[in-house]
Nucleic acid binder design. Structure first.
Length: 343
DNA sequence: GGATCCTTCTTCTTCTTC
């Protein structure tokens, strides 16, 4: 049975998300090319029924909408300068074909030994890659109008509080902490297996990183068999690339892992916004990149907190990964359309 | 040497009651 879990707005299009997809979908790539067989919702005219679906599926109903909030903000902050929109043609309803998330055609060496140093393929933009867009850029340029609205509102409020310069420093500091945290995680993971990492001798992290590392120490204990770290993945057929944080086993399951720092608690997967799409995009690229001789179906988003409170590990099952992969394909196609209309 | 790239982050209603 299919269960309609929630409704996600993708570039202004309401996409019903389903669970309980057939597991057999992942063993044969042809299944991915015929989603209708598995999801009756994929044939729904989502534009026509979007408001209905939204009102039915929304558990919590707020009297405030982006529209009413915008009117209020305009009153307080002045008129909004709207970004130019590019959608001149008919609204896209989803990708015409679903490219396989897994690459089943190539001979894969699943028996590849997992010991040894993790792979780290550096990003080399010089080798004809300059025109290949990145996962981050694609996600940033295909944010939904709601996402753009809330992000802009947040930014305005922060600037009102901190001033332009204060906000700039605040943002730089968040980025700096994120980078330091990534380096520290990398250092721990390359220092050995969970068993022989010397956890009693706590390494001296920079003060800004100490709390984050404490926050995820219980999660790192379950991460082993690290295969790749900060490694470039490129989907040659779909023409995009990215740098995956980590590929390793979490509680025995091979995952693409993304490490995140956060100021706010993110106890649920839905609190991580586009992060699951990012992870699915990396996994799909890795699965279709000849540099990697194995396939990864699962994902993990690890959220760390500065005050050292227990971090969250959000598991992305292969079923969920496939759902987010489909969402990624929509975003990718939207980006490609944007690009061609600008050319 | 400088410029550019990929990342690093940032959003999710309100204030009604026990």
């Amino acid at each position: 049975m299919l269960v309609l879990k929630r409704v996600v707005s993708v570039g202004g299009i309401i996409v019903p998300q389903c669970t309980s997809l057939s597991v057999s979908c992942f063993s044969a790539s042809h299944c991915l090319n015929s989603p209708k067989r598995h999801s009756p919702y994929s044939s729904v005219d989502s534009e026509r029924y979007s408001s209905l679906v939204k009102s039915v599926m929304s558990v919590r109903v707020s009297s405030q909408t982006p529209e009413t909030l915008q009117a209020e903000d305009e009153h307080i902050y002045g008129p909004v300068v709207k970004a130019q929109t590019t959608s001149s043609g008919p609204k896209m309803r989803g990708p015409k074909t679903l490219h396989p998330f897994l690459n089943c055609e190539e001979t894969l060496n699943l028996e590849e030994p997992e010991s040894g140093q993790p792979v780290r393929i550096a990003l080399n933009r010089g080798q004809g890659r300059s025109s290949v867009p990145s996962v981050t850029r694609i996600l940033q340029q295909t944010l939904s109008p709601d996402q753009i609205f809330y992000l802009e509102r947040w930014k305005k409020r922060m600037i009102a509080e901190l001033g332009e310069e204060g906000f700039k420093q605040y943002s730089l500091n968040l980025f700096r902490q994120g980078k330091l945290f990534h380096s520290a995680v990398e250092e721990v993971l390359t220092s050995g297996t969970p068993q022989n990492r010397n956890l009693s001798e706590t390494p001296e992290y920079p003060p800004d990183v100490q709390g984050y590392m404490e926050s995820i120490s219980h999660i790192l204990e379950d991460v082993g068999a690290v295969r790749a770290i900060e490694s470039t993945v490129q989907h040659n057929a779909l023409n995009y690339l990215g740098v995956a944080d980590c590929v390793a086993r979490y509680r025995g399951v091979l995952c693409v892992i993304d490490w995140k720092t956060s100021e706010k608690p993110k106890p649920f997967l839905r609190n991580t916004y586009d992060n699951p799409i990012q992870v699915a995009a990396y996994a799909g690229a890795l699965n279709n990149d000849a540099n990697y001789k194995y396939q990864v179906e699962n994902g993990l988003i690890v959220v760390a907190y500065k005050d050292g409170s227990p971090g969250h590990a959000h598991k992305l099952s292969s079923e969920l990964m496939l759902e987010y992969w489909k969402t990624w394909l929509v975003r990718l196609e939207e980006f490609t359309e944007q690009r061609s209309s600008h050319a």
